[in-house]
Design a protein around this nucleic acid. Structure first.
Lengths: 141, 141
DNA sequence: CTCCTGGGTTCGTAGAACGAACTGTGCTCC
DNA sequence: GGAGCACAGTTCGTTCTACGAACCCAGGAG
């Protein structure tokens, strides 16, 4: 977990990924939506690419010169639950008007989507208190 | 989501919360386990308390003077899925020996626990691609 | 030829994190 | 009853990072 934070825990990384999940792929759009300094954004994108979370893809729009855009790799897509978890907590505790700014719905069935803790026997867990952490192997650290 | 990151996105906050979920409550233990500078830890604990995520509880161990410890509030406990999400991703992509350093099991049934995306009609979703984001109300932001 | 836009890089400054040293308080042990 | 110790901080000086503004370069449009 510390490792994950080392990879995506820097100030703008997760916000960049949120934009990526919303379909924003181009540098200028990211910069405008986030309001981050360009230098920082450049750096965050570079480390995300380096970590294999984003992929730099060249493309060419009609009547424009070649540019490149940033797309999520499968490794990046697997960060989705993390983003959803942050969103849900924010919706619950920080939504001023009681309305979440972004709703997630199941494509096709239309019902709202949320994260749940489940165990492999199929039980749904109510909360953290039903979970017991168990250290795997006794190693260093 | 940006709000959530503003609250718990600073460098050590989520690590402090991980320790809290593992039962570490005392300043010195946190400081030892995390290796963070004391000044930073003091600051992070103060803001977490201020945000209502931790609670500062005085206690008195036998034969010791009064001290205080930090406990999770319900608001803090609701951050559990976020922590689990980060953990799962780290286990999948960063575990060197292929073994997760910490397993979560369902108290009572013993089966491994993980996070799942579900919709309110009870369908389990395979991944981010089955989710459609829908902006709620068009406001200022 | 000049302007504009996308995607950067290069500054100087302001703020944050770091480690080490210091403070204070209530133990226990000699 | 004084010395030492552990816990919980605070203070201090240095280093690292973020920030905003300015600059650069390429290609297309006017």
């Amino acid at each position: 977990m510390a490792g994950t934070l080392a990879v995506v825990g820097e100030k703008w990384s997760l916000l960049v990924l949120r934009e990526a999940f919303l379909g924003v792929r181009r540098f200028a759009d990211l910069q405008r939506n986030l309001g981050a300094p360009k230098a920082v954004l450049t750096d965050r994108l570079a480390t995300l690419v380096e970590q294999g979370i984003l992929h730099r893809v060249p493309y060419q729009a009609e009547g424009e010169r070649q540019r490149h855009e940033y797309r999520l790799t499968p490794k990046g897509i697997d960060l989705y639950p993390t983003l959803v978890a942050l969103m849900q907590w924010g919706d619950r505790y920080l939504a001023e008007d009681g309305v979440a700014p972004l709703a997630l719905e199941h494509r096709g069935c239309g019902a709202p989507v949320h994260l749940a803790l489940v165990c492999e026997d199929g039980h749904a867990l109510a909360g953290a208190r039903e979970v017991r952490p168990r250290p795997a192997a006794v190693s260093s650290r």
